[in-house]
């Protein structure tokens, strides 16, 4: 059986509060906080990007997997903020881990779904017997346009999963994918900020695809919502995952361990994968976990994992996700945030 042999997270320490952003744009912070169910978000330092966070998350996964990195035969980084437009992120990651040169690598891009795409492919390559170990990473340092609603949520973080066949932390019981062509959100070549379809990103986009994927995988697995111990949905804001959970018949108790968004923001490709890491941090042997991502454009990947007793041996070999979220925070003022995110026009 194949599944997860190691998982790791990385969250930068900088935060900015909703109030701090709202103050600059004359927006009403309480209504944003309530409407988005969002208090603050993570911000990368000027020396952090998708690649650096991918490396750190993957090193944490490697610590838990305790394998020789040269045996990793596939390295996939999913992100909508790859530092280079042309030149892979995955090569840097594979080189930093020591997985080269016998290794297949590719960068994925599918808005917020790119991380689970990498996981999906890595897992299935292991399943097919093509590689001994496969690494899938979701990482982003997403940008929302200044003053746009997305600016309150676009955050930074990474989660990495190493898939294999032995010493599993969690068995992969089922996978499923659901997608259509739905232009709810996009960023054109050479444009700095994305554009979104406002309320069109809701029902025909997020809700349709997340519920489609959830119902599809449950049917494929012959399971009902109550058969799962935990569920993680993509978290563009605090509200959407809670609402879609309720719609599908999941309880808050199933959702909340992986619901990081109120203090983390939307880490795009890292969002639902980070929720999976924080859920694995507290899960027990036998627990079943449903993971459903969402990427604008639009589609959802779905996975059902079953936790093994091996997890207790490896869990504390790397930092827990909630610890990274709650500790050693550094709150930024908007000016500093704008500087960090290169939103200030400077001389050449």
């Amino acid at each position: 059986m194949e599944g997860i042999v190691g998982y790791g997270a990385y969250i930068p320490r900088n935060r900015i509060k909703v109030e701090e952003i709202a103050k600059v744009w004359g927006a009403d912070a309480p209504s944003y906080k309530k409407g988005l169910m969002l208090e603050e978000k993570s911000v990368p330092s000027p020396d952090q990007d998708t690649i650096t966070m991918s490396v750190e998350a993957s090193k944490n996964a490697l610590k838990r997997a305790n394998i020789d990195p040269v045996k990793i035969g596939a390295v996939y980084v999913g992100s909508e903020s790859h530092p280079y437009a042309v030149k892979p992120s995955g090569t840097v990651l594979a080189e930093a881990l020591g997985a080269t040169p016998e290794c297949h690598t590719a960068d994925f891009e599918f808005a917020c779904k790119a991380g689970t795409e990498g996981m999906f492919v890595a897992l299935n390559l292991v399943k097919a017997g093509a590689v001994e170990f496969g690494l899938g990473v979701g990482a982003d340092t997403s940008q929302g346009a200044p003053g746009d609603a997305l600016e309150y949520s676009a955050a930074a973080g990474a989660a990495a999963f190493i898939f294999g066949r032995e010493n599993l932390v969690a068995r992969a019981l089922e996978t499923y994918a659901f997608m259509t062509d739905t232009p709810d959100f996009r960023r054109r070549e050479n444009k700095y900020y994305p554009q979104h379809g406002g309320r069109f990103t809701g029902d025909p986009a997020y809700f349709k695809h997340v519920t489609g994927a959830a119902r599809g995988i449950l049917e494929k697995a012959g399971a009902e919502p109550q058969d799962l111990d935990y569920v993680i949905f993509h978290q563009p804001n605090g509200k959407f995952p809670l609402r879609v959970g309720k719609l599908l018949g999941f309880s808050k108790e199933q959702i909340l361990p992986g619901w990081l968004v109120n203090k983390l923001g939307n880490t795009y490709s890292g969002s639902s994968p980070l929720g999976l890491t924080s859920t694995l941090d507290i899960a027990k042997a036998g627990d079943k976990i449903l993971l459903i991502s969402y990427g604008s454009g639009a589609g959802s990947d779905a996975f059902i994992f079953e936790v093994t007793d091996h997890i207790d041996k490896v869990r504390d070999l790397a930092p827990r996700t909630r610890d990274m979220l709650d500790n050693n925070k550094n709150y930024l003022e908007y000016g500093e945030y704008a500087k960090f995110r290169h939103k200030i026009r400077k001389a050449d």
Binding site: S45, D47, Q48, D49, I51, T52, P83
Partner: peptide
């Protein structure tokens, strides 16, 4: 140790880690 970006070589050059 942590893996970080050291600097960008201008706007079009390599990114140094």
């Amino acid at each position: 140790m942590e893996f970080r970006k050291m600097y960008d070589v201008g706007h079009s050059g390599i990114i140094c880690y």
